[in-house]
C-alpha cells in the first residue's frame, strides 16, 4: 500500500492547523467583541463552510484560483503561483474550509469569560494584546485544544473541496480521502479498506483525546 496519500493528508492537516492558529485566534478574538453588523456579516461568511456543500465551495475556489482570470490570473502573472492542482492551493482551500472549526469554539469560549477579567487587565495599564496573551488565552485552554484537534481532524477528512481544487495528482494533491475514492473507483476494495481504516483510527484517537481531556476539565467536548 502506498502510504504517501496518508502522509500528504497529515502534512495538509498540520500546515492548515498551524496557519489557522495564526489567523483564527486573532479573528476569533475580534469576533468575540461587541456585535456589530459588520462582525455579524463576517461571522456568517466564516460559518458558511459548515453548511455549504463542499463541492459548491470547491467550485467557487476553483473559479477564484483559476489562472485564466481574476485572482488566480493575477497570482500567476505576478508571482508565478498556481493554486489550482497544487499543494499550496489545497492549503488555502483547507484554511477557508476549516476556519469555522477553529474560530467558532475559541470565539464562544472568549465570550463566556467574564468581561471584568479583560477590564481588570486594562485598568492595570495592559494593552489589548497583553490582555489577550496573558489573561484571555490561558483561560480558554480546553476550547483552544478542542478547536485545534477538530480543525486537524476535519482537514484530515476533507474530500469535496480538495478533489475540486487539487484533483488526484499522486504525491502532490492525492490525499487519503481521495485515495479511498480512487481505490473504490478502481474496484480495489482492499486498498480502500486499508486507507479507510487508517483514517478511521487516526480520527478516532484524536477525538478520544479531546473527550478525555475535556472530561478531566468536567466539560463536554463541544463546549
Amino acid at each position: 500500500m502506498d502510504v504517501s496519500p496518508v502522509w500528504l493528508s497529515i502534512k495538509l492537516a498540520t500546515v492548515t492547523t498551524l496557519l489557522l492558529l495564526l489567523v483564527g485566534l486573532p479573528l476569533a478574538w475580534w469576533l468575540s467583541k461587541r456585535r456589530t453588523l459588520f462582525r455579524m456579516l463576517a461571522e456568517v461568511l466564516i460559518t458558511m463552510p459548515l453548511v455549504l456543500p463542499p463541492s459548491v465551495l470547491g467550485f467557487y475556489l476553483l473559479l477564484a484560483f483559476s489562472p485564466q482570470h481574476g485572482l488566480g490570473k493575477w497570482l500567476h502573472d505576478v508571482f508565478d503561483v498556481q493554486l489550482v492542482f497544487s499543494f499550496p492551493g489545497l492549503v488555502l482551500a483547507s484554511v477557508i474550509y476549516s476556519l469555522p472549526f477553529m474560530a467558532g469554539p475559541v470565539r464562544s469560549a472568549l465570550q463566556q469569560l467574564p468581561p471584568s477579567q479583560a477590564q481588570a487587565s486594562y485598568t492595570m495599564g495592559k494593552s489589548e494584546w497583553q490582555t489577550f496573551r496573558y489573561v484571555l488565552l490561558p483561560n480558554i485552554k480546553p476550547a483552544l485544544l478542542t478547536a485545534t484537534i477538530l480543525t486537524f481532524a476535519h482537514t484530515l477528512g476533507e474530500f469535496g473541496v480538495v478533489l475540486m481544487i487539487g484533483g488526484n495528482i499522486p504525491g502532490v494533491t492525492r490525499v487519503a480521502s481521495v485515495a479511498v475514492y480512487d481505490a473504490v473507483e478502481q474496484m480495489d476494495y482492499s486498498l480502500a479498506a486499508n486507507y479507510s481504516l487508517l483514517l478511521f483510527g487516526i480520527t478516532f484517537l484524536l477525538l478520544m483525546s479531546v473527550f478525555i481531556y475535556n472530561r478531566a476539565q468536567a466539560k463536554t467536548p463541544l463546549e
Binding site: S116, Q117, Q119, A120, T123, P138, N139
Partner: peptide, 10 residues
C-alpha cells in the same frame, strides 16, 4: 485601581 464586585481574578 479598580476593585470589581465579582473580583475579576485571573
Amino acid at each position: 485601581g479598580f476593585v470589581f464586585q465579582d473580583h475579576a481574578l485571573f
